[in-house]
Amino acid sequence: MIVAQVKIYKDGRVEALIGSQDIGGGARTVILLVTSSKLGYLPLEKVRVKIGDTDLPRSGTSAGSSTTPSVTREITAAVEEVKRRLFELVAPELGAGAADLEIRPGGKVGGRGDAAKELDWDRATRLISESIIGHVPTELKEVAIYYHADKRGKLTHVTLDDCERSA
């Protein structure tokens, strides 16, 4: 099961996809800011947020002051994953190991502690063939089981919500 997805496109655009919803608390904006901040405070105009759709990765109900902490955690993990893929593409260009790369302010990609060797965001993302995706898989396979009963309370059938369907 996937709880959040962050995509980086060849032209430098970023998409954060998460099946949360904004009830007025500003979740949409929080997701935008977290995505940008985890990518070196990338300009907000480069980041697009998609929420509010069960076709998107599953997220929780907005309740108990939990939306901001949970979407932050989920989006952060997805960004970490997509960053890892980006570093693998950029590493040969910089002659460094992918594990030694980091994102610097403004989205520059460079080796840790070596300011001279870096690529700005647009040059780094140009190395992507179309897009790269960071998923957050959870080890917990969260499956909702619904028991259906008739009016007398007799079990009629069971349905599963594995939270995914082929798009």
């Binding site: 099946g19 919803q21 009830i23 509010g52 759709d53 069960t54 599953r58 997220s59 929780g60 109900t61 907005s62 309740a63 909702a144 619904y146 259906h148 009629t156 059938h157 349905t159 919500d161 939270c163």
Partner: peptide, 15 residues
């Protein structure tokens, strides 16, 4: 406040 929960409930109601 929860679209996934809303879908689950709709599925349950409509079997």
């Amino acid at each position: 406040q929860g679209i996934h929960a809303a879908r689950g409930a709709m599925a349950q109601a409509l079997r």
